[in-house]
Nucleic acid binder design. Sequence first.
DNA 1: CTGAAAGCGCTTACAG
DNA 2: CTGAAAGCGCTTACAG
Lengths: 341, 341
Amino acid sequence: MRPTVRDVAEAAGVSLATVDRVLNRRAGVREATIARVEAAVARLGFVRDLAAANLAKQRSYRFVFLIPSGPNTFMRALEQQAIEAGRRAALDRVEIEVAPVPPFDGAALARALDALDTRAVSGVALVATDSAEVREALTRLHQAGIPAVTLVSDVPAFRRSHYVGIDNVAAGRTAASLIGRFAGGRRGRIALIAGSMLVRDHVERRMGFDQVIRSEFPHLDCLPVLEGRDDAETTGRVLAACLAEEPDVIGLYNIGAGNRGVIDVLSRNPAYRDLVVVAHELTPHARRALREGLFDAVIAQDAGHEARSAIRILKALIDGTPVVEGQEHIRIEIYLRDNLP
Amino acid sequence: MRPTVRDVAEAAGVSLATVDRVLNRRAGVREATIARVEAAVARLGFVRDLAAANLAKQRSYRFVFLIPSGPNTFMRALEQQAIEAGRRAALDRVEIEVAPVPPFDGAALARALDALDTRAVSGVALVATDSAEVREALTRLHQAGIPAVTLVSDVPAFRRSHYVGIDNVAAGRTAASLIGRFAGGRRGRIALIAGSMLVRDHVERRMGFDQVIRSEFPHLDCLPVLEGRDDAETTGRVLAACLAEEPDVIGLYNIGAGNRGVIDVLSRNPAYRDLVVVAHELTPHARRALREGLFDAVIAQDAGHEARSAIRILKALIDGTPVVEGQEHIRIEIYLRDNLP
DNA sequence: CTGAAAGCGCTTACAG
DNA sequence: CTGAAAGCGCTTACAG
């Protein structure tokens, strides 16, 4: 049988209350007593039962997810997954609130962070826009003792507790390798479209992509990045214009969202069938495009995994339990038509 | 505040014991009383606190993992992950025992299953060898009320509770697409090596591979499958012999383990550098081969995810709680040099 | 068929 | 600085 606080109390010759004080490092216990209790803990190999502790404490958690609003299908999926994970987490007394924030707007995100009631909120997960205001707001949260994890898009390491998302430089490199190899030695230009060069994930993917094309596929040439605002209509418009002007484009990398716009353009002109196309996120549109051969590969991250991971990490940070890194690593997933889930 | 059994008892005008009887569908309660309690549960939206219930029950779980012994690096990793996951699960009163069984030996696996003490074991996870004896042993376990999940390699659907692993036909298709596309239109033959055609995962991968090569890359031709027993030495030997005899091999698919043997052969002969090579599982050897360009892609499954998933599923089966399918889906992961974790 | 009381492994006021 | 007792939300004998 696993030892309990009772056994520790008995072995150390103290009361339950004192064992509890020592276990939870509460003040007001004599050094000698602390030592006796700790010796007993070590001797018995006592590990406290967190479930019982939480039950006694009636501890509950309230996590807020700040997710960009708008039509971005991936963000809507992330929102759904957060709600879904929250439904299950309710059994462990954790409550999830999902709050929308305007996309690509550091000032608005900072305002949303500042508006959080630090007494009522125990942790925050946010899809970050990288800006000075956001960094300052995160610093304030940190000072208030509230853990924050960035989701999908990060801000430089300093005042967030954890980043839950993929390595976007590596994702860009992966896209480049796939396009380069699938092109099979043909020479030509590659069109690039991002949502905005203000979000770190898009900037990083572009960097990674460039690195690999330059070093390994010098017969390919990247056009300047178009900005589609992660919006299907804008993305479609700028892409159509670009393809109309540039005749020797043989590949296309959609760094951001707006896959519907890309698909529209590709499916309207049979000449575009031969383009090697890589895009991000396994949305219903992307799946269809993959199945129909319009897209050659999709690089994805699992929104459900990210939502659950954010919750587990915030909880571990608060409880002081270790984070299982292997479980929390978000993979750069590659999908071809053949391994669609 | 969430309602508790107390609130339900009060609302239904019965005692705690009776609420408990109804919640756990124990016999010996009048129909009318059951109805009153259930009405109260529905009205209050009561959901029982599993942690508290398990605490009161002092419920503990004992799961046995049956994993093939031998030098197969992936199986050793799976074993480690099971032990690791078990260490964490100990906090939730679940104890994991890992027992080795001889590989590719249905009779031995069936004997190991039959030898389990059905009173002391609450669930079983096994890497299945597909044979009649194993199916019968699983049927006996099922009759004893012990849930069993198959891990990595399945047996046909009938007497196991769940399969934790990838879709191996799709994995084979994926391998074929990668080799076909990376070959870039060249024509030639593809060498195939499996561990054994007695384990279902290898058979299925081969089927999927064949399907795609025949239908989409008719200029490529599959050689008969070699068997390497998932062993580096044997794999290297049969592969070397095959490559020496067949001059027009341009691609290689290692369906099973024994990657070290493949790497040895490839690195000894510079002429083999141009082969398009796809293998399975992200072992240290495979990582190195990918980094050095000896392998072009690796198809993998996450052993840590599988171990944790098996534990969660067995626990849910026993507790009668729902399985979160999204969380338990094991992905067919594709790794290139660029997205190595 | 139903209920009062004790207990699971912790924590929390309240006394002293 | 330390302890006795009650309580968290359930379940389990034991009575009746």
